[in-house]
Nucleic acid binder design. Structure first.
Lengths: 337, 337
DNA sequence: TTGTATGCGTTATCAC
DNA sequence: GTGATAACGCATACAA
C-alpha cells in the first residue's frame, strides 16, 4: 500500500499551469468569469496530471456552508427508519449534499451529543426523526441551524408527518365494520408520541362505536417483533378474548402472528391482525398482513425538501402526508359464537 | 423563527474574556499547555455566555483530518446493510467520528461519484460494502484515503468478510444429510460476488454428494422478496420438482415461502427452504426460517475498527467472521415417494 | 503563563 | 482576461 501523500492544492495546479490560483479556481468551478480557452486548456491539463481535486473543507470554511445535513433516527436497523433515510439520502444526493447518520436509540443524552457535534461541524441542517425533540434541544439549535422534525409536531419547527390518530381510527373503524367488538391494541413504547397517537385513534374509534375498552386491551411494548409477540401473549389472556389485534407497527404484528400460531389460533378466522407501516415484508407474511401504509420513503424525501427550502431562507408549511389502509389477508369478520 | 446569526468565534470569546485566542484554544481543547486557573475560569464563563462552540471545519483544515468516514452500501433499506451500518456507526460514534451515508444502488457511476465527493471532503476513510470495488475505483483512492472492503476480497485492500462458499456448502450439506437430492438454488443477482460465491458453495456440496444439478435448478434473481418469489415460481416447474430451496438471502426465502404457499405446497413437509443472513424477521416467519446467520452488525463494527487501525498507519490483517446455520422450522426430510 | 504570528486551501473582491 | 490579496476560524511554534 502506497504512503498517504499530501494531495495537490490549487497552488500546485496554478504553478504547473503557469497561472494564478484564482484562474484555476475559475476553471475548476466552471465560474461565469471569462477565461481564455487556451488558458483553460492548460489548467485542465495540469489538474489531470496532478490528480487535483478541490478541498471542500476550505471552501466550506469560506462560504459558511458545508453541504452536509445531519439525520437523527432512533435506529437504522428499523426498516421504517431505513426507508425514511433512503428517501432523505436520495434527495440529498441529487442536490450534492452529504448525509451524516446518527443513531440516537431514543436516548436524550445521545441525541444532545449528536446535535452538538453537528453544530460544531456546521452542517447546513438537521432532520430529527423519532424520539423527542425537547425545548432544550430546540434552544440549543435555535437560530444556529435549520431543523425539520419528522413524525411529530413541535411548535415552531417545520415538520413532516402523518395523522396517526386518524390512521389508527380508520384501521379500527374497518374492524368495527367487519363486525369486531373486542379489539385490542398492541401499542408501541409509551415514550413514543407516534405510539401514543395511534392509541388515541384506537380509543376514538372504539368510543364512536360505543365500545368501552377495558384497560387490559391496551398493552404497551417495544416496536419490535419480540415486543409484539409478548404483548400479544399478554393481551390474549383477556376474557372475552379479543377477536382483533391492532399492532403499532408491522414488526409487532409479525410477532403477534407468531404468538397466535403458537396458541393454535387461526388468522383471520379466529383473530384478525392489522399492522402499521406497510414494510416490504408485510406482503410476504403468512397470512399477508393488512396494514396502514405510512409513506416512509416519501416522508424522507419531503423532509429533505423542507430542509432545502429552509436553507433557502423561507419558512415552509408543515407537510402532512396521507396514509392508506392496505387490506390483505390477516383481517376478516370475527368468528360467530 | 429567529434569524440565523453568525456564530461566535474564538476571537469573540478571547475579546470577551480579555485574553488571546491562543489561550481560549488551550482552555477549550483541554490542552496540556498550562493556563492559570483564574484565566481558565474567565474563558469558560465567556464561552458559556456567548454560546461558543468550536468550528470543526477550521480545525479539520488545519489538522488535515476530518473525523469523518464514508460508508458505501447498495441500499440502506436492505436489512442486512442496515445492520452493517448500525455496527459501523456505533464504533464510529464511540471514537467521535461522523458517518456519511452513501447509497450506490450497485451502480458503478454512482459509486464513483460518491468516492470523488468523499475525496473532496477529505474524509479519514471509506468502507465499501456490497457492489464492486474495481481497479479503477482503487486507483482513484489509492494513497489518498484508507479503504476497507466488506463482503468480498480485493487484492491489497483490507477486508471484512465471511466465507460464503463454505457457508452455502454447509447449508446444502445439511439438506443432503436430511435426505434431499433435488436441491434448487434461488441465487441473487449475477453481478453480486456474494451471490456467486453462494452458488459456488451450493455446487460444491452437490458435487460432493454425487449430485449433478441441471442448469434449471439455479435461478438468478434480485436480492428481494419479490425476486425470491419469482425465482421460486420458475424453479418449481422443474421435474422432478426440487424438494429443497436454498435462497441467497432471507428476503428471497420469504418470497419463496409465499410462492410455495400459493402453489399449495407445505413447508417443510413438501419442500424445505433455507435462507441467508438471519434477519430479525427470520425467526417470525411462518414457518420460522432455517437460515445461515451472517454477523452483519459485527462485520460493521469490525470494518470500522480496521479503518481506525488503518488510519493509525498500520496495515491490519483481513477479518473473516464465522457463519452459523440456524435450524428452525422450514427444513425437514424430503417427502417419501 | 500568556500573546503574536503563521498557515491550512479556498474563493470573492479588487485592481490591472 | 488575469492576478494579487484578504478573509474564513482555528491551532501551534515561537517569542515574551
Amino acid at each position: 500500500m502506497r504512503e498517504v501523500v499530501r494531495s495537490a492544492t490549487i497552488w500546485d495546479v496554478a504553478r504547473a499551469a503557469g497561472v494564478s490560483p484564482a484562474t484555476v479556481s475559475r476553471v475548476v468551478n466552471g465560474s461565469s468569469h471569462p477565461v481564455r480557452a487556451q488558458t483553460r486548456e492548460r489548467v485542465l491539463r495540469a489538474v489531470a496530471e496532478l490528480g487535483y481535486y478541490p478541498n471542500h473543507l476550505a471552501r466550506s470554511l469560506l462560504r459558511r456552508e458545508t453541504a452536509v445535513v445531519g439525520v437523527l433516527v432512533p435506529d437504522v436497523s428499523n426498516p421504517y427508519y431505513a426507508s425514511l433515510l433512503r428517501g432523505m439520502e436520495d434527495v440529498a444526493h441529487q442536490h450534492g449534499l452529504a448525509v451524516v447518520l446518527c443513531n440516537t436509540d431514543r436516548r436524550p443524552t445521545k441525541q444532545r451529543a449528536y446535535l452538538r457535534a453537528l453544530l460544531e461541524r456546521r452542517v447546513d441542517g438537521v432532520v430529527v426523526a423519532g424520539g423527542a425533540f425537547t425545548r432544550a434541544d430546540e434552544a440549543m439549535v435555535a437560530g444556529r441551524m435549520p431543523v425539520v422534525v419528522v413524525g411529530r409536531h413541535v411548535a415552531g419547527v417545520p415538520s413532516v408527518r402523518v395523522d396517526n390518530v386518524e390512521a389508527a381510527r380508520q384501521a379500527c373503524r374497518y374492524l368495527v365494520a367487519l363486525g369486531h367488538r373486542h379489539i385490542a391494541c398492541l401499542a408501541g413504547p409509551r415514550s413514543s408520541p407516534t405510539a401514543r397517537d395511534r392509541v388515541r385513534g384506537y380509543r376514538a374509534a372504539l368510543q364512536e362505536a360505543g365500545i368501552v375498552p377495558p384497560a387490559a386491551w391496551v398493552v404497551w411494548s417495544a416496536f419490535t417483533a419480540s415486543g409484539g409477540y409478548h404483548a400479544a401473549r399478554t393481551v390474549l389472556w383477556a376474557r372475552p378474548r379479543p377477536t382483533a389485534l391492532v399492532a403499532a407497527n408491522d414488526q409487532m404484528a409479525l410477532g403477534a402472528l407468531r404468538a397466535l400460531r403458537e396458541l393454535g389460533l387461526r388468522v383471520p378466522e379466529d383473530v384478525s391482525v392489522i399492522g402499521f407501516d406497510d414494510t416490504p415484508v408485510a406482503a410476504y407474511t403468512v397470512p399477508a398482513l393488512t396494514t396502514v401504509a405510512i409513506p416512509a420513503y416519501e416522508m424522507g424525501r419531503k423532509a429533505l425538501e423542507l430542509l432545502l427550502v429552509l436553507r433557502g431562507g423561507a419558512r415552509p408549511p408543515d407537510a402532512v402526508l396521507p396514509t392508506e389502509l392496505v387490506v390483505r389477508e390477516s383481517t376478516g369478520p370475527p368468528p360467530v359464537l
